[in-house]
Design a protein around this nucleic acid. Sequence first.
DNA 1: GTAGGGTTAG
Length: 789
Amino acid sequence: MDPRLLASHYMVKLSRTPITQILARAIHAHILTSGFRPSTFILNRLIDVYCKSSNICYARQLFDEIPKPDIAARTTLVAAYSSMGNIRLAKEVFYATPLRIRDTVSYNSMITAYSRNRDGHSAVRLYKEMRVEGFVPDPFTFASVLSALSLIADQERHCQQLHCEVIKWGVACVVSVCNALMSAYVNCASSPLVLSSSVMAASRTLFDEMEERDELSWTTIVAGYVRNGDLCAGRKLLDGMTEKIVVVWNAMISGYVHHGIYDEAFELFRKMQSMGIKLDEYAYTSIISATSNAGLFRLGRQVHAYILRTELQPSEHFILSVNNALITFYTKHGKLVEAKEIFNKMPIRDLISWNSILSACVNARHIEEANSIFKEMPERSPLAWTVMISGLAQNGFGEEGLKLFNQMKLEGLEPCDYAYAGAITSCAVLGSLDNGQQLHSQLLRLGHDSSLSASNALITMYARCGLVEAAYDVFLTMPYVDSVSWNAMIAALAQHGRGVEAIQLYEQMLKEEILPDRITFLTILSACSHAGLVKEGRHYFDTMCTSYGITPGEDHYARLIDLLCRAGMLLEAKSVTESMPFEPGAPIWEALLAGCRIHGNIDLGIQVAEQLFELMPQHDGTYIILSNMYATLGQWDEVARVRKLMKERGVKKEPGCSWIEVENMVHVFLVDDAVHPEVLSVYRYLEQLVIEMRKLGYVPDTKFVLHDMESEHKEYALSTHSEKLAVVYGIMKLSPGAPIRVFKNLRICGDCHNAFKFISRVVKREIVVRDRKRFHHFKNGECSCGNYW
DNA sequence: GTAGGGTTAG
């Protein structure tokens, strides 16, 4: 075929019909085999097709194969590389183009490339360069360079300078240039050094003085107001509009949702509906998110049903984003099954779908499931890692959380402050102070130390590692705090038996007008409980309802009952259970049973245990407490009966286990340990200690041995308790005078509690023990709990 | 041949 004919044939084909990649390949092949040199027009179209189908390699091949591609082809390629995020190749082509044949369009493309690559400085530099070289900027140049300004510091000054240039080059009346300028001014407001009202005013003046406006002009100004928190100004403009521009409505609705003004969001949504403005995925996702945040389950489900009924041919993008929002909606309302159903039925999923279903599983504490989703994900974004790390930590998987955090770093991903918070929480779970401190110093180095989530995690970490003062330091030096910080600090004091201080801090919180939430009351109730402050606890329980409108949940009642039980008011506690507006569940009975144990009320204990056996027959704690109660009374037949019951039902007792950190290594001891390599020397050291302790009056309290055996053996059994072994190991290994910090998975044993008082005197060191419930600080023969535990 | 707005994940 005659090459010229072929060319015109291509021209027609290329300009009229959408070209598939296959067709492009065919033309490309023909060009190569026939030696036909296509016009720039054809070349550009082909490059464009390849790029739109993500085939940048072919595009470059085409470019390289054709001798001396002209400026238009080069520019197309720069733009293509830019839109695919490959700045390296874009630069290569641009700078290989001789200066004398570059034109304004090639500069525009390169400036955009830098801007897309989030390199605002290079974009601005190139703009200045082109001006020095004498190229004339056009409206596209300004649109490109102005959009790059949001990426650099001192944007306001640059904005004003470019504003002058715009006027100088006579393009101030071009709508697209004005839009870009307005948008640049609006973006300045995100800098803390800029007064948002002044840049918004500059933007508004531009808007008001525009002779003609397009949809984007309206959107830029309204979205600008919304983003900078001036919802009223945005709404005023919206109400005065004659045109119905969907994007503006959507921006307004999302603004209301972000500011928690849900009523207005719903009202606007309904208005859109009644005015016949097409509701698209943006409107729906915002409104679904409103129902998620506002806890409006029924309304959310109605929206869901409405979408299914009315959207008969939804686009792919519509299905994707709406379903993503729905996953979160069902997750936030505790409906994992529904969330999973939506996810499973989705024809296509993106990063957000995967991240949403991952957090759905994490929130529902289905860690196994979350783990397999995490492994299955096609792309693990830093967010997914973060969700997984904090999910593991918050569900007590400290070791796994920390491991994942380290793995994230090994894979070259930079953990954000939330990921650090997860890792720090992992340390809190493990009681790993060394790791926690290292993470703290990393935070300081990275400048993440002002992060709210990381600092809140630090408070908890230091507290759970036994360093209340360090927790306090973090709390006091935080640039701003939220109710989580207050709750964490109050809890820190409460766990360490400093109930009065916890209450004082709570009162301080009220003075600073921070509203307490349900967590605050849980914390303050346990503070009162640990410190034996019955009157105060009752008072706070009442004010929770009367002054703050928080309906006490089962967990609040459980703490109130715990408070009364510890103080020996078992009958009153019992009567509270009867006055509750719901049937008592396991937490209530457990609190009562613990009270019965402390005060040796076996009759009530048996009744309560029966309830618990029914509710959770596989729970070891009930059997243990009951058998221990019989054992203290010497009723060994009954002990045997309970043990037999356990065996029959296949219930296993969680073995006691304690651990201590020495030089960044965690050493674990079990009851009657024979596993730890140095356990023999630990036993020998303990024997010597006991001799010294007896001189000071220590008598092993064998009532804490819960099996029937000779008293000599009982003393031996006591000496094998895991917490004793860990404490002794600490005395042997830690530098002289350093406090001993030991962690135990169960509650501390009574004889160990007594023994540690004596040990603290013999070795003249502070011993800190964290058990399942709280901390004990032993110093000079006394414990911080005042024996009230 | 080049630029530009609104959403959903912690």
